[in-house]
Design a protein around this nucleic acid. Structure first.
Lengths: 346, 346
DNA sequence: CTGTTAGCGCTTTCAT
DNA sequence: ATGAAAGCGCTAACAG
């Protein structure tokens, strides 16, 4: 009356390697080799077939936890992003996923919406899931986040962001983009060009403003502080900044970001200023959104998807032991003319 | 000259439980209990303190793979979404994350952009990362996806979507929302109301059309087929559908989705029809985007975030053994009046 | 070509 | 109050 192993209650436990091994009448190590398509897997064809058959019948799928524990590798990457309401991140994510898939990695996205909770959220991430590397897209404290992961020994690169002391990033050439946008307005004959800038002190905000000012100077125009308004990188930011610019004497706006450009559009409409008849507007970063507003917004396109893809490639290279440091700024890929810019009537 | 254990090469291996145990001079099981704050952890205060000290010094963090393997639990959920260009998914994600965090779960987002690759992507997901449950937001084959996870023994609920034979979903009351939108137009005096519908045969498209037709009939108006145009749930869909409706004799549009409503706006602008002076437009689903277009779009708001949150709660209940089936349709939470609707001049 | 063995890092009875 | 031991499911030498 010895109780026969109460080991396997009728609960539907997923099949393991050993289940397959048992039914195929081989050792589990053989199953492992076969199912993994291991390199030197010298296995008799009939054995292989038997194993594969059983595995299929059982619906076997390796347990990623066990495998990861053993191999110290998960083939999984995390993309850390702030909230996704900004199309730039969607594009980054798209490129990142493409690149990850191409190299056999899964990529999961993890949101850290609030700079204040950043630390806590990241801890929660790393103690819930094991990834081989991380791509960090713009956080307030991107440098801190980078350090956080580095300390854990996790390869990690910044995307769309640069931070002091972090030699792993891929971003865009903000200065060149801003220069291109401003130059476009200048070519249309505009001379009094206002700038809806980014938040004070933000790295890429500074570089964009520099590009704007360089373009003006090259055209013999001295930049004026009162034509510049700082704004968050958001619709509301652009909308409010535009309001402060309404009385300025200008015929065109260069908005530092798609969202703030759209905010500007809205304020101009409310104020009864016609775009592009009264005011031309151009913004940095292209996205489907630019097509949806009235009038459709002329933009400078950046290779945002490529940015995500390059970041992922760099992280995977790191993981593979190629200690590739990466400091990359991708130039703009062109101007997308839509309906929001017209020649100056000046 | 016996080589002293070459165990620990200078490679910076993250500290393990045993490292902590060794330095604190206790057994690793004690460390486990202490660090986990286990229930019946009868530990001498000084021992506890010593352990916590060492753990802190070493920067110890438990390996989620090992823990998960042992406990059969990861405290991690996956949210499967198509591409995020639709604001509805952003809101779902936001609610889902809030709910997950509240219950101590991490939530990672996984994109399945292409219905054709759905199967392959999902397999990649489950063999890369182990989650305790899944929330599926609108996939083409949501029913298949559900079945896929169920077969793996993974609790799983559909959000924003219903599928035949799936008793786990939380969506919105499409019929009621459509009825509300249409009624609003009727109240403004419109009688000839066109409908930009969803794709043929799509479940919620059908229900929305039903709500539209019911509202018309209640007002003594017989619905007309030629006032209805099917469209994808996208900007382009709405834009093109609107084009086919341009010659129809109507004074108002009820668009089935925010994005298609915005597409309609664009076509109307190009055609020189003024909104709301010539045509009123209303759409289902509210989002910041509605505020960004010209004119700002009047919408029916659904509790989309709550939808995500409820779905997560249900999945976690499942995981916790509460076999809670859930068939929930959340009613619209109101009408958001902006500038796109005006009384009929009829 | 196949099996044996050891162990990844953790949790969990069960002894002591 | 603490420790010993087993094992989650898998892989990687190594032996045969």
């Amino acid at each position: 009356m010895t109780e026969p192993r109460p080991q396997r209650p009728p609960t539907q436990r997923p099949p393991t390697l050993r289940d397959v091994a048992r039914l195929a009448e081989v050792d589990s190590s053989v199953v492992s080799r076969v199912l993994r398509g291991a390199s030197g897997a010298n296995v008799r064809p009939e054995t292989r077939e038997r194993i594969e058959q059983v595995a299929r019948d059982l619906g076997y799928s390796p347990n990623p936890l066990a495998r990861g524990l053993r191999t110290q590798r998960t083939n999984c990457l995390a993309l850390v992003v702030p909230q996704l309401d900004n199309p730039v991140f969607q594009q980054i994510a798209q490129g990142a996923e493409r690149a990850a898939a191409a190299r056999g990695f899964a990529l999961v996205t993890y949101h850290v919406r609030d700079a204040a909770q950043e630390r806590e959220r990241l801890e929660h991430l790393v103690r819930s899931i094991r990834v081989d590397g991380v791509v960090i897209a713009t956080l307030m404290m991107a440098g801190d986040a980078h350090q956080f992961f580095e300390r854990l020994g996790l390869p990690c690169v910044l995307v769309n962001r640069e931070a002091p002391g972090v030699p792993n990033f891929v971003s865009v050439d903000d200065e060149a983009g801003a220069h291109l946008a401003t130059t476009h307005l200048l070519r249309l004959g505009h001379r009094r060009i206002a700038h809806i800038a980014g938040p004070h002190g933000r790295y890429n905000a500074i570089r964009r403003r520099e590009g704007y000012e360089r373009a003006l100077r090259e055209a013999g125009i001295e930049p004026e502080t009162r034509l510049v308004a700082a704004a968050e990188y958001s619709f509301e930011g652009g909308r409010d900044a535009m309001a402060t610019l309404l009385n300025a004497d200008m015929t065109a706006i260069f908005a530092t970001t798609l969202l703030s450009g759209i905010g500007a559009l809205r304020t101009l409409d409310v104020a009864g200023r016609r775009v592009p008849d009264d005011v031309s507007v151009i913004a940095l970063h292209d996205a489907p959104l630019a097509e949806m507003v009235t009038p459709p917004l002329t933009t400078v396109r950046f290779p945002t998807e490529d940015m995500g893809a390059e970041a992922v490639d760099a992280v995977i290279d790191h993981i593979d032991g190629l200690q590739r440091h990466l400091e990359r700024r991708l130039p703009p890929t062109g101007l997308v003319e839509r309906g929001s810019c017209a020649p100056s009537r000046g």
